[in-house]
Amino acid sequence: MKLRADQLSKHLSSPLLPVYLITGDEPLLAQETADAIRAAARDQGFIEREVLDADSGFNWGHLTAASQSMSLFGDRKILDLRLNGKLGKDGSQAVVDFCESAGDDTLLMISAGKLDRNALRGKWVKAIESKGALIQIWPIDRSQLPRWLQQRAQQIGLNIDRTGIALLAERVEGNLLAAAQELEKLRILVGDKAVSGDEVNALVASSARYDVFKLIDCVLQGQTTTALKMLAGLRTEGAEGIPMMGAITRELRTLHRCSQMLAQGAGIDRVLDSAGVWDKRKPLYKQTLTKIKERELASLLLLAQKIDLTFKGQQPGQPWELIDQLVCRLSGQKLAVNG
């Protein structure tokens, strides 16, 4: 079957098909489509996941072997196949063979770039359409972008006026990943306030140098000095502490949950998949979870709670100085403090 992106949410509430092909050249929408399928699969018992990167030298026997092997823990399994180039004869046959023998215990999800018309007519694509679903990701054109931005803003609880949406659409020039990041930054910077066009113009420009998400990534990379400079920049630019701490605390909660699962003996890849960590951020999480253990992360969560109460005036202290401490500890350094 062919499945439109706007049909996906309803489809995923039903038992999943054995194979999905996601094709298109819009990275954000393709990534979120894959994330949605993986989340639905986990909810339906597909706990184990194996990633296969199919480049020009890929041995397609690995797909066959992976599809026939039993899960180590007896769970249902996702085969996450990243297609980097053309399948070729062997790859096409391997996918066809999988479709013909597909059972209930293994789900194959193939992520590819944009396939041309000839590729979409291929035997392997037809086999997927017969047993599973083909999901084509279409780009958002210039005329549709303001509506997409408005819907995205509503989804994350950001109140932004029509002028602000128009300015943002012009600024991101059709780059949906950049657009999504700018909306998230605005939500962090302004919280529940309504955002006007003038504020979009000022905040998007001023946050280009220092933003919360870059700060968090620097912290997880152990770049303490750079992170402290970014934090100072955010403070100078008037970033609101409470929503900023909300973003940092969410990251801490995810790290702490992962650390707890690791302490119980789960494998790191399985843990990160279960926590919904995006593939591009997994190296940051692995690095942090190696050097900072569960007890320290629990302590940092208590510190984050204290900072939030201090910003709200419900507890004495200097919140920005406390954030300096949190940033240093999370990046693996100790900050000398007086008293």
Rank of each mutant, 00 (worst) to 15 (best):
R235Q: 14
L215P: 04
G91S: 07
L108H: 05
R121N: 09
L29A: 08
F46M: 07
V96E: 11
L72G: 05
L115T: 04
L252V: 11
D141N: 15
D6W: 11
H62R: 14
K131S: 13
S331Q: 00
R253D: 01
D75A: 12
G24H: 12
E50W: 01
T236F: 13
I165T: 03
R76I: 02
D25M: 01
L303S: 14
S207Q: 03
D6F: 11
D75R: 13
A304N: 07
I242E: 08
I160N: 01
E294C: 15
Q305R: 14
L167I: 13
L297T: 00
L183A: 07
G339Y: 14
R4S: 03
P15C: 01
V172C: 13
R250T: 08
L203I: 12
R38Y: 10
Q44V: 01
V277T: 09
D105T: 12
S331E: 08
A336M: 03
S56E: 09
W148P: 09
Q260W: 06
D97L: 02
I140V: 15
T310N: 12
A194D: 14
V200Q: 06
L302H: 09
I156R: 15
L186W: 03
I128N: 00
D211N: 14
V19D: 04
A194H: 05
Q151D: 12
L203E: 03
A263Y: 04
Q144F: 01
A180G: 07
L252K: 10
D192T: 01
A66G: 08
V195Q: 10
I160W: 02
G122I: 04
Q264N: 11
R253W: 11
G24V: 11
G332N: 04
Q221W: 07
L252N: 08
N175H: 08
Q264M: 13
Q314E: 15
A34G: 10
G103Y: 10
S14I: 00
L158K: 12
W60N: 00
K293F: 05
A133C: 08
P319W: 06
H62E: 14
R117W: 15
T249K: 03
A166N: 15
N118A: 15
R142H: 04
S130L: 09
K89P: 00
L29Y: 01
Y285A: 14
R82I: 05
S111F: 03
R209L: 13
Q93N: 08
T225K: 03
R76D: 00
K193H: 13
L326W: 09
D269S: 07
N59R: 11
S101M: 11
L186D: 08
Q136H: 11
G57R: 02
L231T: 06
Q31C: 06
